[in-house]
Computed example of a mutant assay.
Amino acid sequence: MFGAVVGRVANRIGGAQLTLNGTLYKLIANDGNNTLHGGPKGFAHVVWKVKKHSNKGHAPHIVFTYYSSFDGDQGFPGAVLATAR
């Protein structure tokens, strides 16, 4: 896939688990025994909302947000509000 927004992580998490502040988090494996690019429902596979856009002037742009990544989503700790421009 080219031009994808990956998340929560870019790359692999070995064994589909991580330890943060002494707590073990078991993630969903989607690359053999590993978690790749945020799991099977990474940020490239969800619907983002358009926050704002402009096609005027010298810098046309669009800003997307995604907030459905709640605490515990696919095993990851903490909620995430992601923005892509």
Rank of each mutant, 00 (worst) to 15 (best):
F2D: 12
V5A: 04
R8V: 12
R8D: 07
A10H: 06
N11E: 14
N11R: 09
N11F: 00
I13C: 02
I13S: 01
G14R: 06
G14S: 11
G15Q: 07
G15A: 13
A16Y: 01
Q17H: 10
Q17S: 12
Q17V: 01
Q17I: 00
L18T: 14
L20Q: 11
N21V: 11
G22C: 12
G22P: 14
T23N: 13
Y25N: 13
K26A: 08
K26T: 15
I28H: 09
A29P: 02
N30T: 00
D31G: 03
G32S: 08
N33Q: 10
N33R: 05
N34F: 02
T35A: 03
T35M: 00
T35G: 03
H37L: 10
G38M: 13
G38V: 07
P40S: 05
P40Q: 03
P40Y: 14
K41D: 06
K41M: 03
F43A: 05
A44F: 00
A44Y: 02
V46P: 01
V47C: 08
V47H: 06
W48T: 01
V50A: 00
K51Q: 09
K52Q: 12
K52R: 03
H53V: 15
S54P: 04
S54N: 04
K56D: 14
K56H: 04
A59S: 05
P60Y: 08
I62K: 11
V63M: 09
F64Q: 13
T65I: 12
T65L: 15
Y66T: 08
Y66R: 12
Y66W: 10
S68A: 10
S69H: 14
S69Y: 04
S69N: 08
F70C: 03
G72W: 05
G72P: 02
Q74P: 06
Q74M: 09
F76T: 15
P77E: 15
G78P: 02
G78A: 11
G78C: 09
A79R: 14
A82P: 01
T83E: 15
T83S: 10
A84N: 03
